[in-house]
Write a protein that binds this DNA or RNA. Structure first.
Length: 111
DNA sequence: AGCATGACGAACA
DNA sequence: GTGTTCGCCATGC
């Protein structure tokens, strides 16, 4: 890891802070970290976070509340399964009542 | 150094 | 409301 682990570390930490039964978005994390607009980097971090078992990436979805990253999990059905296990209803690869389950670091951590 | 890609997002047609 | 394009920043070839 020659590059700054800082950015990745921050993403991991935020994701780790996501309470069970809650979800957040890539953009929200990126915005909170200051790299707003670069939601891709968050996704990239998640990809690296794959090795971090302490990083519940299944709680991170896109702005639409859709489980876009499920394809990158050990099993595509794993992500939805975990979410439903935590009380988050998922329908057609999308979180039901997404706004209700949304956990925004910028709000929860409130600067 | 340049081109292609990516777990996204917003703007535009 | 759906489909397409551009922008973001970093990694890989």
């Amino acid at each position: 890891m020659k590059s700054n682990d800082n950015f990745f570390a921050q993403v991991y930490q935020v994701v780790r802070l996501i309470p069970s039964g809650k979800v957040t978005t890539y953009g929200a994390i990126a915005s909170y970290l200051g790299s707003k607009g670069s939601a891709r980097m968050v996704g990239w971090a998640m990809n690296a976070a794959h090795g971090m078992k302490d990083v519940p990436a299944h709680r991170v979805v896109n702005r639409n509340g859709m489980l876009t990253g499920k394809t990158h999990f050990a099993s595509p059905n794993l992500m939805q399964e975990l979410l439903e296990k935590e009380g988050v209803l998922v329908e057609n690869n999308k979180i039901v009542d997404f706004e209700n389950f949304l956990w925004d670091p910028a709000i929860a951590l409130e600067l």
